[in-house]
Protein backbone atom coordinates (compact mmCIF):
# COMPACT_ATOMS: atom_id res chain seq x y z
CA UNK A 1 0.00 0.00 0.00
CA UNK A 2 1.29 3.45 -0.83
CA UNK A 3 1.85 5.99 1.89
CA UNK A 4 -0.30 8.54 0.09
CA UNK A 5 -3.97 8.17 -0.56
CA UNK A 6 -4.78 8.17 -4.24
CA UNK A 7 -8.52 8.24 -4.09
CA UNK A 8 -11.09 9.08 -1.48
CA UNK A 9 -13.82 6.76 -0.40
CA UNK A 10 -17.41 7.68 -1.29
CA UNK A 11 -18.13 8.25 2.39
CA UNK A 12 -15.28 10.76 2.61
CA UNK A 13 -16.56 12.49 -0.49
CA UNK A 14 -20.05 12.84 0.95
CA UNK A 15 -18.63 14.18 4.21
CA UNK A 16 -16.57 16.75 2.34
CA UNK A 17 -19.60 17.85 0.33
CA UNK A 18 -21.59 18.44 3.49
CA UNK A 19 -18.67 20.28 5.05
CA UNK A 20 -18.72 22.74 2.17
CA UNK A 21 -22.24 23.91 3.04
CA UNK A 22 -22.73 26.81 5.40
CA UNK A 23 -25.19 27.58 8.16
CA UNK A 24 -27.59 29.20 5.69
CA UNK A 25 -27.94 25.90 3.90
CA UNK A 26 -28.72 23.94 7.03
CA UNK A 27 -31.31 26.43 8.30
CA UNK A 28 -33.02 26.23 4.92
CA UNK A 29 -32.83 22.45 4.90
CA UNK A 30 -34.25 22.32 8.41
CA UNK A 31 -37.28 24.42 7.44
CA UNK A 32 -38.07 22.22 4.45
CA UNK A 33 -37.40 18.97 6.31
CA UNK A 34 -39.75 19.99 9.13
CA UNK A 35 -42.56 20.15 6.58
CA UNK A 36 -41.54 16.90 4.93
CA UNK A 37 -41.58 15.17 8.31
CA UNK A 38 -44.91 16.82 9.18
CA UNK A 39 -46.45 15.57 5.95
CA UNK A 40 -44.92 12.10 6.12
CA UNK A 41 -45.30 11.19 9.78
CA UNK A 42 -48.64 12.95 10.08
CA UNK A 43 -50.19 10.40 7.75
CA UNK A 44 -50.06 7.82 10.54
CA UNK A 45 -52.11 9.86 12.97
CA UNK A 46 -55.01 11.03 10.89
CA UNK A 47 -58.41 9.80 9.89
CA UNK A 48 -59.56 10.69 6.36
CA UNK A 49 -63.13 10.99 7.66
CA UNK A 50 -62.15 14.16 9.58
CA UNK A 51 -62.04 16.15 6.36
CA UNK A 52 -65.50 15.30 5.11
CA UNK A 53 -67.78 18.29 4.96
CA UNK A 54 -69.43 18.91 8.28
CA UNK A 55 -67.45 16.24 10.08
CA UNK A 56 -67.14 18.52 13.08
CA UNK A 57 -68.48 21.81 14.29
CA UNK A 58 -67.92 24.79 11.97
CA UNK A 59 -65.09 27.30 12.45
CA UNK A 60 -64.11 26.19 15.91
CA UNK A 61 -60.81 27.49 17.30
CA UNK A 62 -57.96 25.11 18.23
CA UNK A 63 -58.86 22.77 21.04
CA UNK A 64 -57.66 19.48 22.48
CA UNK A 65 -59.89 17.65 20.01
CA UNK A 66 -58.94 19.77 16.99
CA UNK A 67 -55.37 20.95 17.52
CA UNK A 68 -55.51 23.30 14.55
CA UNK A 69 -59.23 24.03 14.81
CA UNK A 70 -61.78 23.47 12.05
CA UNK A 71 -62.75 25.45 8.97
CA UNK A 72 -66.11 26.90 8.00
CA UNK A 73 -67.07 23.59 6.43
CA UNK A 74 -66.42 21.68 9.61
CA UNK A 75 -63.23 19.94 8.46
CA UNK A 76 -60.33 19.27 10.81
CA UNK A 77 -57.58 21.63 9.68
CA UNK A 78 -54.67 19.58 11.05
CA UNK A 79 -55.79 16.56 9.02
CA UNK A 80 -56.36 18.74 5.99
CA UNK A 81 -52.91 20.29 6.20
CA UNK A 82 -51.20 16.94 6.76
CA UNK A 83 -52.86 15.66 3.60
CA UNK A 84 -52.11 18.91 1.74
CA UNK A 85 -48.38 19.05 2.46
CA UNK A 86 -47.24 16.14 0.23
CA UNK A 87 -49.42 17.40 -2.64
CA UNK A 88 -47.86 20.84 -2.57
CA UNK A 89 -44.29 19.58 -2.19
CA UNK A 90 -44.91 17.02 -4.95
CA UNK A 91 -45.84 19.65 -7.52
CA UNK A 92 -42.53 21.37 -6.87
CA UNK A 93 -40.46 18.21 -6.97
CA UNK A 94 -42.17 16.67 -10.02
CA UNK A 95 -41.82 19.92 -11.96
CA UNK A 96 -38.19 20.32 -10.94
CA UNK A 97 -37.25 16.71 -11.75
CA UNK A 98 -38.71 16.96 -15.25
CA UNK A 99 -37.47 20.48 -15.92
CA UNK A 100 -33.99 19.87 -14.54
CA UNK A 101 -33.54 16.64 -16.48
CA UNK A 102 -34.62 18.16 -19.78
CA UNK A 103 -32.88 21.46 -19.11
CA UNK A 104 -29.60 19.88 -18.05
CA UNK A 105 -29.56 17.48 -20.97
CA UNK A 106 -30.36 20.11 -23.59
CA UNK A 107 -28.05 22.64 -21.92
CA UNK A 108 -25.17 20.18 -22.02
CA UNK A 109 -25.84 19.12 -25.59
CA UNK A 110 -26.39 22.60 -27.03
CA UNK A 111 -23.39 23.93 -25.14
CA UNK A 112 -21.10 21.20 -26.35
CA UNK A 113 -22.13 20.58 -29.94
CA UNK A 114 -22.49 22.99 -32.85
CA UNK A 115 -25.01 22.74 -35.64
CA UNK A 116 -28.45 23.60 -36.96
CA UNK A 117 -30.20 21.57 -34.25
CA UNK A 118 -28.24 23.47 -31.61
CA UNK A 119 -29.25 26.79 -33.20
CA UNK A 120 -32.86 25.66 -33.19
CA UNK A 121 -32.87 24.65 -29.54
CA UNK A 122 -31.04 27.84 -28.56
CA UNK A 123 -33.69 29.94 -30.30
CA UNK A 124 -36.40 27.87 -28.63
CA UNK A 125 -34.81 28.49 -25.23
CA UNK A 126 -34.64 32.24 -25.83
CA UNK A 127 -38.30 32.39 -26.83
CA UNK A 128 -39.55 30.09 -24.08
CA UNK A 129 -37.85 32.24 -21.48
CA UNK A 130 -39.73 35.26 -22.77
CA UNK A 131 -43.15 33.55 -22.44
CA UNK A 132 -44.91 34.36 -19.16
CA UNK A 133 -45.74 30.82 -18.06
CA UNK A 134 -48.19 31.63 -15.29
CA UNK A 135 -50.39 33.65 -17.63
CA UNK A 136 -50.45 30.94 -20.28
CA UNK A 137 -51.25 28.48 -17.54
CA UNK A 138 -54.20 30.62 -16.42
CA UNK A 139 -55.57 30.45 -19.93
CA UNK A 140 -55.16 26.68 -20.06
CA UNK A 141 -56.31 25.86 -16.55
CA UNK A 142 -59.48 27.90 -16.80
CA UNK A 143 -60.68 25.73 -19.71
CA UNK A 144 -59.26 22.33 -19.08
CA UNK A 145 -59.96 20.24 -16.01
CA UNK A 146 -56.56 19.90 -14.43
CA UNK A 147 -54.86 17.73 -11.87
CA UNK A 148 -51.75 18.56 -9.91
CA UNK A 149 -49.73 16.27 -12.16
CA UNK A 150 -50.93 18.02 -15.31
CA UNK A 151 -50.04 21.37 -13.76
CA UNK A 152 -46.58 20.09 -12.79
CA UNK A 153 -45.99 18.87 -16.34
CA UNK A 154 -47.10 22.14 -17.90
CA UNK A 155 -44.95 24.08 -15.45
CA UNK A 156 -42.00 21.87 -16.35
CA UNK A 157 -42.52 22.58 -20.04
CA UNK A 158 -42.04 26.26 -19.31
CA UNK A 159 -39.37 25.81 -16.64
CA UNK A 160 -36.67 23.76 -18.39
CA UNK A 161 -35.23 26.67 -20.41
CA UNK A 162 -34.34 28.40 -17.14
CA UNK A 163 -32.07 25.46 -16.37
CA UNK A 164 -30.90 24.89 -19.93
CA UNK A 165 -29.67 28.44 -20.47
CA UNK A 166 -27.26 28.72 -17.52
CA UNK A 167 -26.07 25.13 -18.01
CA UNK A 168 -25.36 25.92 -21.64
CA UNK A 169 -23.46 29.06 -20.68
CA UNK A 170 -21.32 27.07 -18.26
CA UNK A 171 -20.60 24.36 -20.82
CA UNK A 172 -19.68 26.98 -23.41
CA UNK A 173 -16.96 28.30 -21.14
CA UNK A 174 -15.85 24.84 -19.97
CA UNK A 175 -15.46 23.47 -23.47
CA UNK A 176 -12.79 26.07 -24.23
CA UNK A 177 -10.64 24.81 -21.38
CA UNK A 178 -7.60 22.75 -22.18
CA UNK A 179 -8.70 19.84 -20.01
CA UNK A 180 -11.44 19.04 -22.50
CA UNK A 181 -8.85 18.82 -25.25
CA UNK A 182 -6.73 16.59 -23.06
CA UNK A 183 -9.66 14.28 -22.45
CA UNK A 184 -10.09 14.01 -26.21
CA UNK A 185 -6.41 13.22 -26.52
CA UNK A 186 -6.96 10.47 -23.97
CA UNK A 187 -9.54 9.07 -26.40
CA UNK A 188 -12.53 9.97 -24.30
CA UNK A 189 -15.69 10.13 -26.38
CA UNK A 190 -17.90 13.24 -26.53
CA UNK A 191 -20.39 11.44 -24.36
CA UNK A 192 -17.75 10.70 -21.71
CA UNK A 193 -16.48 14.28 -21.84
CA UNK A 194 -19.97 15.67 -21.32
CA UNK A 195 -20.74 13.40 -18.40
CA UNK A 196 -17.35 13.00 -16.72
CA UNK A 197 -15.69 16.33 -17.45
CA UNK A 198 -18.52 18.83 -17.78
CA UNK A 199 -21.29 17.55 -15.53
CA UNK A 200 -19.32 17.39 -12.23
CA UNK A 201 -18.23 20.98 -12.79
CA UNK A 202 -21.76 22.28 -13.08
CA UNK A 203 -23.44 20.16 -10.42
CA UNK A 204 -23.74 23.09 -7.98
CA UNK A 205 -25.43 25.14 -10.73
CA UNK A 206 -27.84 22.34 -11.46
CA UNK A 207 -28.59 21.86 -7.78
CA UNK A 208 -29.23 25.58 -7.30
CA UNK A 209 -31.43 25.56 -10.39
CA UNK A 210 -33.35 22.54 -9.13
CA UNK A 211 -34.12 24.22 -5.84
CA UNK A 212 -35.35 27.43 -7.43
CA UNK A 213 -37.46 25.46 -9.90
CA UNK A 214 -39.14 23.68 -6.97
CA UNK A 215 -39.82 27.06 -5.39
CA UNK A 216 -41.13 28.67 -8.59
CA UNK A 217 -43.39 25.71 -9.34
CA UNK A 218 -44.98 25.85 -5.91
CA UNK A 219 -45.34 29.61 -6.26
CA UNK A 220 -47.20 29.19 -9.55
CA UNK A 221 -49.37 26.32 -8.31
CA UNK A 222 -50.46 28.24 -5.21
CA UNK A 223 -51.09 31.26 -7.43
CA UNK A 224 -53.43 29.21 -9.63
CA UNK A 225 -55.27 28.06 -6.51
CA UNK A 226 -55.74 31.67 -5.41
CA UNK A 227 -57.29 32.43 -8.79
CA UNK A 228 -59.65 29.53 -8.26
CA UNK A 229 -58.46 27.44 -11.20
CA UNK A 230 -56.31 24.94 -9.36
CA UNK A 231 -57.31 21.31 -8.88
CA UNK A 232 -59.90 20.90 -6.14
CA UNK A 233 -60.02 17.14 -5.87
CA UNK A 234 -56.89 16.86 -3.74
CA UNK A 235 -56.20 19.09 -0.74
CA UNK A 236 -53.14 21.30 -1.16
CA UNK A 237 -51.81 24.07 1.05
CA UNK A 238 -52.70 26.58 -1.63
CA UNK A 239 -56.27 25.29 -1.73
CA UNK A 240 -56.63 25.58 2.06
CA UNK A 241 -55.33 29.14 1.91
CA UNK A 242 -57.63 30.00 -1.00
CA UNK A 243 -60.70 28.68 0.80
CA UNK A 244 -59.73 30.54 3.95
CA UNK A 245 -59.03 33.78 2.14
CA UNK A 246 -62.22 33.81 0.09
CA UNK A 247 -64.23 32.89 3.14
CA UNK A 248 -62.87 36.18 4.54
CA UNK A 249 -61.06 34.32 7.31
CA UNK A 250 -58.70 37.29 7.60
CA UNK A 251 -61.54 39.65 8.51
CA UNK A 252 -63.64 37.19 10.47
CA UNK A 253 -60.81 36.64 12.97
CA UNK A 254 -60.59 32.95 11.99
CA UNK A 255 -56.81 33.19 12.39
CA UNK A 256 -56.35 29.42 12.86
CA UNK A 257 -57.70 28.89 9.38
CA UNK A 258 -55.40 31.12 7.33
CA UNK A 259 -52.28 31.58 9.46
CA UNK A 260 -51.04 27.94 9.51
CA UNK A 261 -51.08 27.53 5.71
CA UNK A 262 -49.38 30.95 5.43
CA UNK A 263 -46.63 29.85 7.82
CA UNK A 264 -46.20 26.53 6.02
CA UNK A 265 -45.88 28.18 2.62
CA UNK A 266 -43.47 30.75 4.03
CA UNK A 267 -41.36 27.95 5.49
CA UNK A 268 -41.18 26.30 2.08
CA UNK A 269 -40.25 29.48 0.24
CA UNK A 270 -37.78 30.79 2.81
CA UNK A 271 -36.23 27.34 3.27
CA UNK A 272 -35.75 26.80 -0.46
CA UNK A 273 -34.43 30.33 -0.85
CA UNK A 274 -31.79 29.82 1.84
CA UNK A 275 -30.72 26.53 0.26
CA UNK A 276 -30.40 28.03 -3.19
CA UNK A 277 -28.55 31.06 -1.81
CA UNK A 278 -25.99 28.74 -0.30
CA UNK A 279 -25.73 26.57 -3.42
CA UNK A 280 -25.30 29.69 -5.54
CA UNK A 281 -22.38 30.73 -3.39
CA UNK A 282 -20.75 27.32 -3.84
CA UNK A 283 -21.37 27.37 -7.59
CA UNK A 284 -19.77 30.76 -7.96
CA UNK A 285 -16.76 29.91 -5.79
Amino acid sequence: MQAYSTTRSPAQKIVSIFKSFDLTFYIGLLLVLLLVVFGALGQFFIDQRDIRLGASSFSSPPSAEHLFGTDALGRDLLTLLILATPTTLNIGVVTAVIATSIGTFLGLVTGYFRGPLETGIRTLIDIMIAIPALLILVSIASFLPSSNTVIAVILAIFAWPFTARPVRAQVLSLRERAFVKLSKLSKRSDFEIIFFDMLPNITPFIAAGFVSTVSNAILAAVGLQLLGIGPIDEPSIGLVLQEAFFASAVFRELWWWWIPPMIMLSMIFIGLFLISLSLDRIARH
Binding site: T6, R177, A178, F179, K181, L182, L185, K187, P200, N201
Partner: peptide, 24 residues
Protein backbone atom coordinates in the same frame (compact mmCIF):
# COMPACT_ATOMS: atom_id res chain seq x y z
CA UNK B 1 -4.69 9.32 -30.78
CA UNK B 2 -2.09 7.30 -28.98
CA UNK B 3 0.81 8.63 -31.02
CA UNK B 4 -0.11 12.29 -31.45
CA UNK B 5 -0.31 14.17 -28.17
CA UNK B 6 -0.12 17.74 -26.96
CA UNK B 7 1.26 20.11 -24.36
CA UNK B 8 -0.87 23.18 -23.79
CA UNK B 9 -0.57 26.80 -22.94
CA UNK B 10 -2.34 27.71 -19.75
CA UNK B 11 -0.88 25.75 -16.88
CA UNK B 12 -4.05 26.03 -14.82
CA UNK B 13 -6.84 24.98 -17.14
CA UNK B 14 -5.22 21.76 -18.25
CA UNK B 15 -6.69 20.17 -15.14
CA UNK B 16 -10.33 19.57 -14.42
CA UNK B 17 -10.80 21.33 -11.08
CA UNK B 18 -13.19 18.68 -9.72
CA UNK B 19 -10.68 15.83 -9.92
CA UNK B 20 -7.34 15.23 -8.28
CA UNK B 21 -4.46 15.67 -10.69
CA UNK B 22 -3.68 11.96 -10.96
CA UNK B 23 -6.93 11.47 -12.88
CA UNK B 24 -5.13 13.06 -15.83
Amino acid sequence: RREVQAIFQDPYEIFNPVYTVDSL
